[in-house]
Structure formats: structure tokens, C-alpha cells
Computed example of a mutant assay.
Amino acid sequence: MFRRLAASAAALSAALGLACTPALAAPRDADPALWVVRDADTTIYLFGTVHFLPKDLSWFDEAVADAFNASDELRMELLPVDDPASLAPLIMKLAVDPQGRTMAQKLTPEDHAAYVKAMNEVGLPAGQLEPLEPWFISVQAAAVMYMKAGMDPKSGSEEVLTQAARKSGKRITAFETPEQQFSMLDSTPEAEQLRGIRDIAYRRDESLAMMTRLIDHWTRGEADETGRLMNEEMKSTPETARILLTERNARWAKDLKARMDSPGAVFVAVGAGHLTGKDSVQDLLARDGLKVERVLY
């Protein structure tokens, strides 16, 4: 669960102020999946992103770069957050337990001890995190774990695309605001949030291995395989999946269908999980009568 929360809160990686210095390696070619929807005067490209990626991947080239360069607008989940401090009021409003409960009060003594041990091993101050909501702790822990494993938000899809859009003067738009996204994360059931905490306490190695597999599938453009892995994981947190994936996909598909009425070309970049499997953005657009094609390269 905490991997999905991290992916759904891309802006938080900047807010955490964490540094990452993975070893450099020779570039590895990656060919992630890309789709297109078009009519006579409108083109929408759909690109699934990964928010934390190894530095040695070369993916922003070939068809992906061509589609991006042909677009007038970059549309992402969130607008870039240039001042992480600006998120502090949201953190105080939505990431602190409103009833004043601590993690020790939400977990069994055994689970809390395992959680504290895990936080110490990850490198986060468990004591300072006690008043915070489980979803926010999961996001922070996931971010640190990914970076220690050599995955870097600065190499992630959103950051690379944002810098390219700014350099070329493209318009950057977003489906959601940080407050909307924080509110969704905060609305997920506490019982399911705590599953994410237990994953950190007991399944860190397994979770990192799963993330590595997801990235491997992403680099090869294997969207179906990525979807199967994610769907299997989501079985244990169905309400979280509904709030963070299914309902958002429906809103975004509606937005994109309306966008087809305006001329121009848009490069849509959202978390790869939104573009895989049943009820994906492509699936919903197709149900509305739009033709979605995979860009082969």
C-alpha cells in the first residue's frame, strides 16, 4: 500500500527535503508504454509515469520525446511544487491526527515495536512521527526507502518532463491540487492505512523487490504485466484503490473526453497505475466511444 501512496503524492518527495546520491551507471535503454487518442484537430498522448526511477535509465527519447515535442501542453496529476514549505499548512491540516492519537494508540504493542524498529532502520525519527496519520508516514518512509535503493525523484518521470516543458515553454496544467490529493489520501480508511504501516514493519524487502519488478515492466513497456502486479497488491486495500485509482480515473477520463472538443496536442503524464487494467483511463475513454491506440516503437 505505501508504494501506491507514494506514487499518488508525487509532490511530497520534494516536501520531505531528502537527498539522494545513487551511483552513476551507463544509461540503460527503456521504452515505456505510450498511447494516443486523436480526432481531426486534437491529439492526446497518454504516458504512464513512475515517480522514483534509477538515474541510469534512458527513457525520454524516441516516440516518447517525439510525442512530447509535438504537444503544446503537459498535463500531470499535480502542478510542480517549487516551494516545499508551501505544503506545510496542508501537512498540519491533514497529516496530523485530528483526535490527537499517536501511532502507539493505533497499533498493537507488538506491531508498534516492529514499526519503531523499522523507522529506525529506514532512518526516520519514529518519535517525531507519532502524532501523524499513517498514510503520511507511509509516504515518507517509502520515499526514503526508494532513494536508499537508488531510485531518485529527480530522475522520475514528472521531474524530467517538467524541466523539459519549462525549457521549451510548454503550458503545464494539472488534474488536481495538492489539497485535493492530500484530502484523498487522508480519506482512505485508517485500517487500510495501517496495513501500509505493517508492510513497512514486516515486508520492506518484499515491497522493494516488487517496486523493482514494476520498474522493470515499465522500462519494457509491459503495461499489462504492471497492471497485474498492482491489481494483486490492491486486493488487500479495496477502498484505497477505489479512492486513489478508480474514482480518479473516471474524473480524468471525463476531463480528457471534454478536452477533445478543443484543438491542440496534449501530453498527459500520470502514474502508470492509472493506465493499466480494467477501469484504466484508456478503458474508460474507449467505453465513451473514443479510439485509444498504443504507439508502437
Results as ranks from 00 to 15, higher is better:
G48W: 03
S187G: 13
G156M: 02
T108P: 05
L275W: 14
P80C: 02
S168Q: 14
A165S: 13
A250H: 10
E158L: 00
D29A: 07
A126W: 12
A201W: 09
T177W: 02
P263V: 00
L107T: 08
K106N: 14
A118K: 14
L57I: 03
V292T: 11
V64S: 09
E130M: 02
V270Y: 12
A141G: 05
P54W: 02
P80G: 03
D83G: 02
Y115S: 08
D29M: 09
L24K: 12
Y146A: 11
S13K: 06
F68T: 05
L132V: 00
E179G: 04
M230E: 14
M119S: 07
K235C: 10
K106T: 06
Q128Y: 07
R228I: 02
M103G: 02
R4W: 08
D61H: 14
A30T: 02
A164F: 03
E239H: 14
P153C: 01
Q105D: 13
L18R: 08
A25S: 10
L78S: 04
N120K: 14
A33H: 10
M151A: 04
V292D: 15
L275H: 13
S86C: 04
Q180E: 15
V37P: 08
A9S: 15
K170Y: 03
A67L: 07
R4K: 05
D66V: 01
G227T: 06
G264W: 07
E62A: 13
K55P: 06
E130T: 00
D61C: 06
S58M: 07
L256G: 13
A95K: 00
K235H: 11
T212E: 09
R171E: 13
A164N: 10
S280L: 07
H217P: 00
R101S: 12
Y297I: 00
R3G: 13
M92W: 07
M210T: 12
L284G: 09
L185V: 14
S207W: 04
T212H: 07
V81E: 12
P189F: 07
Y297M: 07
P263K: 04
A65Y: 11
T226G: 09
K117S: 15
G277L: 11
K154A: 03
R4Q: 15
G169Q: 03
T237E: 15
P189I: 00
F175Q: 06
L107V: 06
A191E: 15
L245I: 06
K254I: 00
G150E: 10
K167C: 05
T162W: 09
G277S: 08
Q128P: 04
C20Y: 11
L46R: 02
R259W: 10
